[in-house]
Design a binder for these strands. Structure first.
Ligand code: FES
Ligand code: FES
Lengths: 141, 141
DNA sequence: AGATAAAAGGACTTTTTTATCCTTTATACA
DNA sequence: TGTATAAAGGATAAAAAAGTCCTTTTATCT
């Protein structure tokens, strides 16, 4: 479903949402260690997210990554689309050129339900709210 | 979700279910042309499916691929697992080492429901039955 | 101003996936 | 028995994804 880069991106954003803030920025090294993820690869991913204004960063000593108030209001859908492109949630599961309920492939019904369920949650839940649930329910990232 | 090879495999198997039989075998070339899929790559995939007894084949003139009565009773789940390995339907969507409802990741609930829906359909529907539906509803492959 | 720390950016390497080609084996049929 | 046909298998090539390293830029603090 998601590329490796996208998985790391989601986890990193959620980790930032839970553990960082404007006052407490986190460096790549810390995040990579916490998530057990390749450091330099994660650096690239954070760069890309930062360029697209999905996370915030500061250079220099006491610099690092965090989520601004604006960032916290975005959704994971934005993160996913930033990493894997805009078609992740529209593509036919069999790779056929178009996915449509009018002219469905044999797996469309189930695949569409799955995809839309996920899509809906990712789209309509703010990263900040998701982070609160993670803390409340002590979920792993 | 599925690798390219797996997508081609599913489509090829369904195409065989609809268009081939013991009496009317199809060659790689025909299938590749019908599905608009790279010929040599498809050949490899059909080989692998054949080795794992998910499809049947005959060499020589008037040879080709088809589904035996046994093959038709199998499910697409077997095809998928043959191509992408046994963990496709058990892996955490975020790539965490285990997926479990007891200790879920933040996306588990939606991801699990979706995945299981698909898994269930692929597992409990025989390829032959699926093929009948495809013909009845004139679905694209 | 100088030293230091951390992200940003560019270039590169490795691994995996996708795709192609060539040789061998089996089989049908004349 | 010989020829043609098609899958099986092995080896390789090309492309994409994952991962690493080095240099530059920006900021902090003394
Ligand atoms: S048409 Fe294939 S998933 Fe919708
Ligand atoms: S724990 Fe991540 S999908 Fe189940």
């Amino acid at each position: 479903m998601f590329s490796q880069a996208c998985k790391y991106a989601i986890r990193a954003v959620l980790y930032l949402a839970v553990h960082a803030s404007k006052g407490k920025k986190l460096g790549v090294k810390e995040i990579a260690a916490a998530l057990d993820v390749p450091k330099y690869f994660l650096a690239k991913i954070l760069q890309q997210l930062s360029r697209n204004n999905l996370i915030s960063s500061a250079k220099g000593p006491s610099g690092g990554f965090y989520l601004s108030e604006k960032n916290v209001e975005a959704s994971l859908k934005d993160v996913v689309e930033c990493m894997d492109g805009p078609d992740v949630f529209n593509a036919c599961i069999l790779g056929l050129p178009v996915c449509s309920s009018e002219n469905p492939c044999p797996l469309h019904i189930q695949a569409f339900a799955y995809r839309e369920g996920l899509h809906y949650q990712l789209k309509h839940q703010a990263i900040g709210d998701l982070a609160k649930r993670i803390e409340r329910e002590e979920q792993k990232i």
